[in-house]
Each structure stands twice: as structure tokens, then as C-alpha cells.
Amino acid sequence: MLSIKNLQARVEDKAILKGISLEVKPGEVHAIMGPNGSGKSTLSHVLAGRSGYEVTGGSVTYQGKDLLDMKPEERAREGVFLAFQYPVEIPGVSNIYLLKAALNAIRKHRGDSEVDAMDFLPMVKARIKSLNLDEQFLYRGVNEGFSGGEKKRNEILQMAILEPSLCILDETDSGLDIDALKIVADGVNALRSPDRSFIMVTHYQRLLDYIKPDVVHVLAQGRIVKSGGPELAHELEEKGYGWIDQGATA
């Protein structure tokens, strides 16, 4: 699915990612944990193709293609989905419009015809219900005036409609109370399948109680310093990140 080899990236003159390597197989869920400033969000932004980051070395291969060579929209159309830590508010563009435009752009890329309006609305409505959102939500501006929890659920809604192959969840748990977290986690779990992979970037272990990862990586100062099974997350929760940082500098 995704193969990251020795990825290095910087913002302006500051090196943030200092050689990251990671293999994600179809159906796997990887959690990337680390303290603030370790480069977690940079990694997700670089994978999604946000401008402002300069890749200075390494490679990222996604389904056999050079991911870094693609524009952000090409990555999306190829099936890479980033759930934003801070979803952007776009007043005046309704949710339903965005969903249609995005889905059709992706379908066109795959050579499929435009989605039929008769099929589309029931499909969206079913998803929206399972995320415990009101239908009116579809006709409001994208994320406009949404609460933190609504924004995160909206990200999951888009993910469910667009059916990506690789989902990158950037701090999806931040700012959520426990009920909202459960709804979001249920939404993600419902999407798990043998041909869909997840990368979850998070600071805390609590999201992993609801979405069970296959592999946990610890990121510190731009490098993966430790990888292991789900138990690694618990270890981090108990000991904090202090011992990791020491390990990284040593």
C-alpha cells in the first residue's frame, strides 16, 4: 500500500523529518505517536501534499506510484484521504456540494460516470445518521460554525463517502469529549476493511482504546525511534514521552 523510505522534509530552513521509513500493508492500522513538535503533523501534511514543506530526501511509494510527484488533488483521487486536525471552514460552499464535487472528481479519475442524484442522497443520509449528525448539516457551509466534534465527524463523513484506500487521521481525537470520540471511532471502525489502510497520528493513547492499531510507532525529533504492537502505546501512556526523547538524543 504505502512505502516510505528515509523521508526527510523541512519547513523554511528547519529540518522537521529526518529520515522516516515506514511500510503499511493493505488492511493495516498504524498509529504514529509522539510528543509535540516531533513531526507527526508534518508527516501527514507531506503525505497529503500541502505546500510549504520541502522534501529534501527519501521517497514515498503509494500503490506502486511516486506519491510525492503528485498534486494534492491527484493524491486524493488516487485514494489518499487526510482527515485534518483543524478542518477548514468554507462559508458559502455547502457540505453536500463539496461531497458531490469531490466524489465526482474521484469517480471521473477512475473512469466512472457521475454519481446519480437518486443514489447519492440516500447514501449520504445513511452515513450521516450513523455519525449522529442532523440532515440539515448537509446544507450548511463546510464546517462553518461547527463545534469541534462536528468538524471531526464531518471529516469522517467525507471519508466514508469518498471511500479512500489510505486514510491519514491527523490528531482526530484532539478536542473531543468521550462521547464524540466514540462516535468518531465507530465511524472509522465501520470503514476498516482488508484493502483499506489507516495511519493515525495522535499524541494520546486513548484513541487507540477505541481503534485498535496493528502497529504503533513512536516519533521523536523527526525519526521513528521505536515500533511495536499495541502494548507500546500503553507503555507510553504510563511512562510519558520523556524516556523516548532521551533515547533520541543519546
Partner: peptide, 29 residues
């Protein structure tokens, strides 16, 4: 806003369409 353009791109919409969509949205309000 560059941020809004990126958000739309990350949903599969090309840059020119994203710009157009945002311009329309600005006016449509």
C-alpha cells in the same frame, strides 16, 4: 485562502475548480 484551496484539493478537486468554487461561495453568501 490558501488553506481552503488545499482542503478542497485534498478532497480531489483540482486547484482551478477549487478557486472557482471558493469565489462562488464568497459571492453566493
Amino acid at each position: 485562502s490558501a488553506e481552503s484551496i488545499f482542503y478542497l484539493q485534498s478532497r480531489g478537486i483540482d486547484e482551478a475548480s477549487a478557486r472557482n468554487m471558493l469565489t462562488f461561495a464568497f459571492a453566493n453568501e
